[in-house]
């Protein structure tokens, strides 16, 4: 987060020197543009971070397509879809919060932020239900992993190789786990943004931290937009 804690020492009414303007910037515009560029570049590093996982996923999915489909179909696409919609709604409330702060609508700003947090927790709650189910079914990779006698979709006679299904579940847990970690960090950021908004730190002129935090939140949403079809919807046609 480019210096989100550095901002907002007090409320500014813009006329003289904005206390939120750090000494080494010439103008507020320059400071705002720097923060947003910094966040976009940071998101670029995040893309490459997940990119290594997508690369591994691509290679193993092409190689073990049958096992990936069989393992994927033990997930509930209904829960996955619900979570996708939850995240999309949270993205809407994030843009609403920014829209509200730019127009000085305090009530809408606070309620949007609270809704964002609720959606965030809802996502994690649903995710933990899914994880719990994986534990019960012994689908968590490791010593107690079991995936015996599961037929390959479309090939009723052939059984899935448990080792290859374990590769799917390994990637599933690493990808969704890292995504959930990003969600937790995002919730932390938005809790702070809610706190700061509550104390009136953001104004119609100065709301960079909300924008920057919003960029991060939307990015985490985009990652999920890809994870959902890649992990939940493999070869569902019968």
């Amino acid at each position: 987060m480019p210096d989100s804690s550095a901002v907002a020492v007090g409320q500014s009414h813009g006329e003289t020197h904005n206390p939120a303007l750090l000494h080494h910037f010439a103008t507020e515009q320059q400071q705002r543009d720097s923060a947003s560029l910094g966040m976009w570049i940071f998101l670029g590093t995040e893309v490459m971070f997940f990119g290594g996982l997508f690369c591994a996923y691509l290679i193993y999915r092409l190689k073990y397509f049958g096992e990936f489909a069989a393992a994927s179909q033990t997930l509930s696409w209904q829960l996955g879809m619900t979570n996708t919609i939850v995240l999309i709604c949270s993205s809407l409330t994030v843009v609403l919060a920014i829209w509200a702060v730019q127009r000085g609508k305090r009530a809408l700003l606070l309620s949007s932020l609270i809704l964002t947090l609720i959606f965030g927790f809802a996502f994690l709650g649903i995710k933990s239900i899914e994880y719990a189910e994986k534990f019960e079914k012994h689908h968590v990779p490791g010593p107690s992993f079991q995936f015996a006698n599961v037929p390959l979709p479309g090939h009723p006679g052939e059984m899935a190789n448990p080792a290859h299904a374990q590769l799917y579940f390994s990637l599933y847990f690493i990808m969704t786990g890292l995504h959930a970690l990003h969600m937790i960090i995002g919730i932390g950021i938005f809790a702070w943004l809610l706190y700061a908004s509550w104390h009136g730190r953001f104004t119609t002129e100065y709301n960079t931290p909300l924008e920057i935090g919003g960029l991060y939140w939307h990015f985490v949403d985009i990652i999920w937009i890809y994870l959902f079809p890649l992990l939940y919807l493999i070869d569902l046609r019968k």
């Binding site: 590093t45 893309v47 490459m48 971070f49 290594g52």
Partner: peptide, 10 residues
Amino acid sequence: ILGTPVIAIT
């Protein structure tokens, strides 16, 4: 910024 994240995930 574009290379280092890949070693991190590795």
